[in-house]
Design a protein around this nucleic acid. Sequence first.
DNA 1: TGTCGAATTGAAGAAATCTTCAATTCGACA
DNA 2: TGTCGAATTGAAGATTTCTTCAATTCGACA
Lengths: 110, 110
Amino acid sequence: MPVPLYQAKAEFFRMLGHPVRIRVLELLQDGPKAVRDLLAEIDVEASSLSAQLAVLRRSGIVTATREGSTVVYALAGGDVAELLGAARRILTELLAGQNELLAQLLEEPA
Amino acid sequence: MPVPLYQAKAEFFRMLGHPVRIRVLELLQDGPKAVRDLLAEIDVEASSLSAQLAVLRRSGIVTATREGSTVVYALAGGDVAELLGAARRILTELLAGQNELLAQLLEEPA
DNA sequence: TGTCGAATTGAAGAAATCTTCAATTCGACA
DNA sequence: TGTCGAATTGAAGATTTCTTCAATTCGACA
């Protein structure tokens, strides 16, 4: 019994828990992309992007292959779209709930 | 445009990124549970569990209701099972991939 | 070979997160 | 009212994560 499963799950979600990493995964759903292209679409320093790409690589959710002088990243497989979709559905509910709450607070000033 | 969506997503995943919080969500899938019962099933200090429950509460993914002298937590709705399922499928692949890699390394000692 | 561009790495400091311990709140109940 | 149990909160300290800047690696190509 190496790593307890719930700990592996927690690490997995933590790996997803960064705006730049989310953006990268979303962009890679349209197909492989060179670092340079990712950099053009995400507002972040090159070295910071590299660090976040390294996190994704270490987890195994993306692969990096060198092509000439550039490096191309791709999803390693796995239905990332399904995961992000499920997350979006829940998130939509949560945000809606928060808006309701906000609306109530505005209606009933103490 | 309040919070960019990819940032909300990242925060959402970060909220999931803790072993105790994962355990709680898994346990709550069987129905509402009192804090005392969660505490009995998870190996953690009471105050630490409280802190993690507070994180879940603030995100809105669970609700807490006081019943007499105990507090009962429940999933706030949202298909958490679907999300955890999607995560497990990807995670299974990733772990399998890592095992392959490990096996290769053991086969071909440099 | 020398150098340019693309990408990564290392180190240092800032910021966020976790755990622990002590103190506090809130019902229940004698 | 006084006190017990359940749960939360606050503060302090340790750990992890992120960003930035400088230095480095690796191809490409003149």
